[in-house]
Design a protein around this nucleic acid. Structure first.
Lengths: 334, 334
DNA sequence: AAACAAGTTGAAATCGATTTCAAATCTTGA
DNA sequence: TCAAGATTTGAAATCGATTTCAACTTGTTT
């Protein structure tokens, strides 16, 4: 049976100093005599002292929590980023406080206010649905980083892969295999990342001297159903193509399903490439070629930068590469 | 530019009453004259008053947060449960505080201590790796519910599907299709749920007069790789079978991949059934028959029960059914 | 009309830290 | 040796709520 939690007064008494001194060794704000320092530290060990988070925050100190707002906790990509954040933070004195934006700007804004009400020391957005204007505002209130979403301004607070380049490489991979009629199923069109991927797709075609065919560009929604429907529609119209580049993996899975329903084989008849490299991608039939985003590392990078910034240490944001992971859903065109 | 946050004193002044009175209307602890009540409420509206969470907790009140410990945030099944919790809580004054158990008992226990240090009003375990003994201990400290994990005791604090029955039905589905040699790829063997699924599988066979063949029972780990490897090993040994029941969906996907590598068709040569019905299951080729666990509803149920319990209202835990969702990966044996 | 119970109210203590300010101690240089 | 400056230290105020306790209003009963 554990006795009541030790307070700062308890350890002050035991170490024969004042609360003030204890607080000082706790926060390392003012130098304290070596002897007293040691005594205080010993007392803290013995009584298993853990500062009360609430008293601390109330007194104007730090809350030792980092607010993490994900666009949608359920997405595998965002989830992996979260894992990275958790993993790094668990080695520090900070804790993540998660909230879900539910894909809606208002919900997200409200969630941020609540987070702020809990005196978070930092704010990490995973994915995003807020305007950069809003983000800048928040950054004025508390250190803010954005992960997994490309920003136009505020680039030094943004950890993201170069989506345009990644999409360019994905498309180039198909072109190099001899494909000329390449479908692109886009992501949700007000996502910057989705737009950048479309741009990369277009540049790859253009630079290879292939005319862009608007009919091959289908609106998707980052989900399986829209990938499936897009391909079905194309097939129904009798449109010819030999490859599909989908804006993410589930979408690519939907596309593959539609192809198989029409007895088209992947990759013999049509090559398919996805984006994200989520866990399931390597176990689809056939295993899927996709663009790997280093989601976990991105999460770690964000957390690292955040902790450094809060403690006013210097840091540099890593340049994380997205790479085409070639598996078996893409093959030479014939 | 927002002015500083309004405090309880501000609104006391504005409503011409004392802090005490404000606190009383805020918490509805003691009756307050109608006129003052209205004045206070008006003042709160006008100043957009939001009580400071920390002051509140420090003073011994509630923290208005529910700790949520997931076994592994990244798992689609647990994630969906989390979504349910979030969804329900967002309509209340409570907020979830997430932590990740990282599949390790020590990490989990440490995480709970931290959560408790933040004075959570309730604790929800999603999945679990702690002993029931531990769980009971925690429940003595703060209201506790467990979701997505069957408990032997403490059943009135547990929201879970009947895994044995669900597995029985899944296996029965295969038997009804004429299968007699049915492989079961288990989950991690110290998960109660995995054990219960194995039991259901065995009972279905026994009740149908089919002898249990230990060689058809393969140890799995709830992931794609182990599903793949299990099937490969069986095939290498020349073991005959016409159906596979995997302990979850990714595992089933791994199994399907192994089959396709050996040119065995699903479902023509071998039927495959998964468990969980995660999002991707409906977009595999062919779409996968699986057991749907109402994960979202389970999360909602846990949150609902929690809020009711904290506020000493009565509640009943719903009996949530798991159902076999028949798609195209299972077919008649021949 | 007096007595008493029930219903309202505010002053002050409390929760457990941080932080300001002034006092106490220790150096240092002339 | 002593004043000036630099270091350490503790007392007390503060953060923003809840809660206890006593006092003050009412209303009811006799």
């Amino acid at each position: 049976m554990k006795s009541k939690k030790a307070t700062i007064d308890d350890i002050a008494k035991r170490a024969n100093v004042s609360k003030s001194t204890v607080s000082r060794v706790l926060n390392d704000t003012t130098p304290v005599h070596e002897a007293k320092r040691v005594a205080v530290e010993a007392a803290m060990k013995e009584l298993d002292f853990k500062p009360n988070v609430f008293a601390r925050s109330l007194a104007g100190g730090q809350s030792k929590t980092i607010g993490v707002l994900t666009q949608h906790l359920g997405s595998p990509f965002y989830d992996t980023i979260s894992q990275g954040v958790i993993a790094h933070l668990s080695g520090t004195s900070y804790w993540p406080l998660f909230a879900d934006g539910n894909d809606e700007p208002e919900t997200a804004a409200e969630a941020v206010e609540n987070l702020l009400g809990r005196r978070i020391d930092g704010l990490i957005f995973i994915g995003g649905m807020l305007t950069e204007q809003k983000l800048i505002e928040f950054n004025n209130r508390v250190p803010t980083f954005v992960v997994g979403l490309e920003l136009l301004t505020m680039t030094d607070h943004c950890i993201s892969v170069n989506n345009e380049l990644a999409a360019f490489n994905a498309t180039k991979h198909l072109i190099d295999l001899g494909h000329r009629s390449i479908v692109h199923i886009t992501g949700i069109s007000n996502h910057i990342d989705a737009v950048r991927r479309l741009e990369g797709y277009q540049r790859a075609l253009t630079e290879s001297g292939i005319k862009i065919d608007p009919e091959l560009i289908c609106e998707g929604m980052f989900d399986g159903q829209s990938g499936h429907d897009a391909v079905m529609k194309l097939l129904d119209r009798g449109k010819q193509f030999t490859a599909v580049f989908a804006a993410n993996d589930v979408c690519a899975m939907g596309a593959k399903l539609a192809l198989s329903r029409r007895s088209l084989s992947v990759p013999d008849d049509v090559s398919v490439i996805g984006f994200d490299d989520q866990h399931e991608a390597s176990f689809t039939v056939p295993p899927m070629t996709t663009v790997r985003q280093p989601a976990f590392e991105m999460g770690v990078a964000a957390a690292t930068a955040m902790v450094a910034m809060i403690n006013k240490k210097s840091f540099t944001l890593p340049q994380l590469p997205a790479e085409v992971t070639v598996r078996e859903s893409t093959a030479k065109a014939h």
